[in-house]
Structure formats: C-alpha cells, structure tokens
C-alpha cells in the first residue's frame, strides 16, 4: 500500500513539472505584452517599462522560468498585481467558499447520482428506468449557469426561500445561514454531476447484475435487498470510483461558473476577476494550485480504489 502511494507520487512529479511549464508558457508565450495590457492603453512608456521590470519580463525566458521554479520550490506562488497580496493568501481567503460549495454539492451528488443509477439498473427497461434516464440526460444537457439564474428568479426572487447571492461563512452565522447560502448553488451545481454519475452507475450496475456471482448469491437464498446492497453494490462502486476524479474535476470546474451566478467570493471568481483585470501572476498561481490539488485528489482516488477492489490491493 505504502509503496503504491510512493510510486503514484513519483509519477506525479513529472506531471506537475509539465503542468507548471505549461501554465508558465500560457502566460508568457502568447501574443500581447502583459505589461502593456496591465498598464492600460493610456499608460506612459515608463510606466509600462516599470511594470515589465516588476514582472521580470525584461529578462530571458529561461531565466524567468527558472526563477519561477525556484519560487515555487519554496512555496511562493507569486504576488497579485491588483489585490496587493500574495496569490497564496488570496487563494487561502477564498478557498473555504469553494471548498464549502464543492463539499455541499458533493454530499448532494453522491447519494442521489449513485442511487438513481442503481435504481434505474435494477428496474431496467421499466418506466422507472426511463424516467431516471431522462432526468440524468437533462442533468448533463442543461447549462448550469442558466438553470442557476432561473432558480434564483423562482426560489429567491419569487418565493424568497433562499438568498439570491452571497456567502455566509461558517464562522459567522453557524451552519444554518452557511447552508442556506450554499444549498441553492450546490444543488444547481450537482445537477450535472448527478446526471453523469447516474449514467455511469447504471451501466456499471447492469454489467454487475449480469455477472455469474449474482446468480450464485441468489442460489444461496440471499434476498434481493442483500443481493443488491452487498453483492452488487460494492462491485458497482469499482468503475464508479474510477470516475470520481473526473466527477470532482467537473464539480470544481462547474463551481467556477456557478460562483459567477451566485456572486460567491470563491476561487472561481478570483480567477475570472484575475483574467478580466489581466492579473497574470494571480491567474498563473491559482491555476497552478488547482493543478497541484487535483494531482493530490487523483492519488486519493487511487487509494480509495485499492480499498474498494481487493484485486489491486496487493499489486
């Protein structure tokens, strides 16, 4: 187990290196002078030059790259140009929002998405299956930001059930207001993941139900509920866990967009504002942190996988 994790970590190193170089190049090799863009069209040449020096853009690219790496090595992800704070602290401030949103959304997604898939597979080709599949299909076809706006119009403006926007930190108002500020965006965000997971789970479950060992369980006299919940379900989880990384990736990606709709001050908003303000170090640093986070998440998913499937435990 430990050796497996070490191996995954060692594989992650080149991936992170390549990702860092890509993020670096993204901001440096593309057309346009960031300094000019930051200073704005009316800035004096001196001002532009000053920004250029400040960014270190006047030095050879390779020097800049090495410097960027040496900073990364000590955990320095750069300074934001517009926020007057380091990228780490800017991200740190907004991280709880995005984490809270993703967490609540995941808590909504997992039981519903997996549950729907199991139900649809168990009653395959029935009207239950048909309805679940239509819902799942809608989940992966409706644009989340649009559903979010409609949802605000109805549930917040019309009915006044939830606040239309904004975030209440857990430390400020306790669980109630925190959840109230998140539940609507979290559910909207969950729709896509629910559809995605339900579709994956259904086909995984169908495969499992056709397996011989299900027949063995029934031949032992095991009741239907135990057949599904004990014999079929854990096997169904194996392929479902493999897409957990993708699910989380979709979730966080979706939250970037949903944060715009509900004006949640999370990382998604940070990055979009960074882009609109041409705050390149901020965008660069945030992207990089995202990449690092997902490399770790994928390793965690691999670990979960070895727990669910005993066949890879010793491998």
């Amino acid at each position: 187990m430990f050796r497996g994790i070490m191996m995954r970590l060692s594989q992650a190193v080149p991936v992170l290196l390549i990702f860092s170089v890509m993020v670096f190049m993204l901001m440096h090799l593309l057309p346009g002078d960031p300094a000019l863009a930051i200073a704005g069209p009316d800035a004096s040449p001196e001002a532009v030059q000053k920004i250029r020096e400040q960014l270190g853009l006047d030095r050879p690219l390779i020097v800049q790259l090495l410097e960027w790496f040496s900073h990364l090595a000590v955990g320095n992800f750069g300074e934001s140009l517009t926020l007057k704070q380091s990228v780490i602290s800017a991200v740190g401030e907004r991280l709880p929002v995005t984490l809270s949103l993703s967490f609540v959304s995941l808590v909504v997604t997992l039981p519903i998405g997996i549950g729907l898939g199991v139900v649809a597979a168990y009653w395959r080709n029935s009207w239950i299956d048909a309805w679940v599949m239509v819902l799942a299909l809608l989940g992966v076809s409706l644009p989340g930001f649009w559903v979010g706006i409609l949802s605000v119009l109805y549930f917040s403006v019309q009915l006044g059930w939830f606040p239309p926007s904004g975030y209440v930190p857990l430390t400020e108002g306790g669980v109630g207001p925190w959840l109230a500020s998140l539940i609507q965006p979290a559910v909207v965000l969950a729709l896509f993941q629910i559809g995605f997971l339900a579709r994956i789970t259904r086909s995984a479950m169908l495969d499992v139900l056709d397996q011989d060992f299900i027949r063995t369980a029934r031949a032992k006299g095991v009741d239907e509920w135990t057949t599904i919940s004990k014999h079929a379900f854990r096997n169904t989880l194996i392929p479902v866990v493999t897409v957990l990384g993708i699910t989380l990736s979709l979730l966080v990606g979706g939250s970037v967009v949903i944060e715009q709709v509900f004006a949640l001050p999370g990382i998604g908003r940070l990055i979009v504002q960074g882009i609109l303000n041409r705050d390149y170090p901020l965008v660069q640093g945030t992207m990089l942190l995202f990449g690092f986070a997902f490399v770790v998440i994928n390793i965690l998913v691999d670990i979960i996988y070895t727990i669910v499937d005993p066949r890879v435990r010793y491998g």
């Binding site: 397996q211 011989d212 060992f213 027949r215 063995t216 369980a217 031949a219 032992k220 004990k230 014999h231 854990r234 096997n235 194996i238 669910v308 499937d309 005993p310 066949r311």
Partner: peptide, 15 residues
C-alpha cells in the same frame, strides 16, 4: 444447492 460452470466468475471478487 447449485454450482455452476465457470468458477472464475461465480465467486464475488470483493468478498
């Protein structure tokens, strides 16, 4: 009781 043709797939891999 019943036993089947293919022992490779007749046992549950996760139990």
């Amino acid at each position: 009781a019943m036993i089947f043709q293919d022992p490779m797939s007749s046992l549950n891999p996760v139990l």
